[in-house]
Simulated scan of single mutants.
Amino acid sequence: MFVQFTLVALAMLVITSEYASGGIRSTLQATPIRGRVIAAKALVVAPVMFAAGVLSGGVAAAVVYAALSTDLFGGYVTLPPAEVAVDLLRVGVFLALVSVTTLGVGTAVRSAAGTLTVVFMVLMGLPLMLLMTGSQVGVEVSLRMPLFAGLAFMGGTDDLTAGLIPYSAGEGLAWLLAWTAAAVAAGYAVLRRRDA
């Protein structure tokens, strides 16, 4: 859960660094159709972060395998290659979508600190606060936010309250895609209306 913020910080810089340096003016002069700017950035961010997610997941799987293979843990562990491959692909997709979501938020917010704050609250802060309220509505809303949608998509079932995530991996992916689309749409709306 916490490794994602390293990639979030990198994805955020794709747009916020241009606003900080003033380079966004040159970008928009070179490509005046603003939808193309955000689409091009998303088309670069998504595959790079997908690869980074698969790589970091592979390293984590190797470390866990090595640790669990020691005598301390009984010395016997198996990692079925097909299951590991599917898990790594899901981690890559999750991190790619979270990174594109970050790009959308960064385009709307235009500052690194603001983007990091908003993304942290959407990914971790707000879902956990809603869970802690204990209200049924708060829990239901929380379970549809990117944190739990991502956990469901990646095969997790625990909602951190000793309950189960009440939907499938496919629905988790749908919720992730909806959050990503909303963030990119918000970024596009701001980019289209405001001067650089």
Rank of each mutant, 00 (worst) to 15 (best):
S99E: 02
F148N: 03
P47Y: 03
A30Y: 01
V190C: 02
D159F: 10
A39P: 08
S99R: 05
L7R: 07
A189E: 03
I24D: 08
M154Y: 04
D71V: 09
A40F: 02
P166T: 08
V98T: 10
V105H: 08
R192L: 14
A52M: 13
A186R: 10
G156C: 09
W175E: 10
M145G: 09
M12P: 00
A9G: 13
L147C: 04
W179F: 05
L72S: 12
I38F: 05
A40L: 03
D71E: 11
I38E: 01
M129Q: 10
G106Y: 06
V3K: 10
M145F: 02
L89H: 09
V190E: 03
A181T: 10
V93N: 03
G53V: 08
V77L: 06
P47E: 00
V139Q: 07
A46D: 01
A62H: 02
V100L: 08
V84P: 01
A46W: 00
R34F: 00
V139D: 05
R25G: 05
Y188G: 00
V141T: 07
L176M: 15
L130Y: 14
D71L: 10
A66H: 00
T157F: 09
T101I: 04
L176D: 14
M12G: 02
L13T: 07
T6Y: 00
L10I: 14
W179H: 14
V86Y: 02
V93D: 01
S168Q: 08
A112N: 10
L173I: 08
R144F: 03
V54H: 07
G58T: 04
Q136Y: 11
R144I: 09
T27S: 11
M145C: 06
A62V: 07
A67E: 13
T157R: 11
R194H: 12
T70N: 05
M124R: 04
A20E: 11
T101D: 04
G58Y: 05
V109G: 11
T16W: 05
G74T: 12
F5C: 11
S17N: 11
V105R: 13
F153Y: 15
P32C: 01
A196K: 02
A185S: 15
E140H: 13
L160P: 11
M121Q: 11
Q29C: 03
L131T: 06
V84N: 05
T101G: 08
V190G: 00
L13Q: 12
I24P: 14
L7D: 05
V8R: 08
F94D: 14
A51T: 05
L10C: 07
R194A: 12
P166M: 05
F5R: 06
V48M: 13
V100K: 12
G187V: 07
L72Y: 14
A189S: 13
W179N: 10
V84W: 01
R144K: 13
E18H: 10
V184H: 00
R25D: 10
A67L: 15
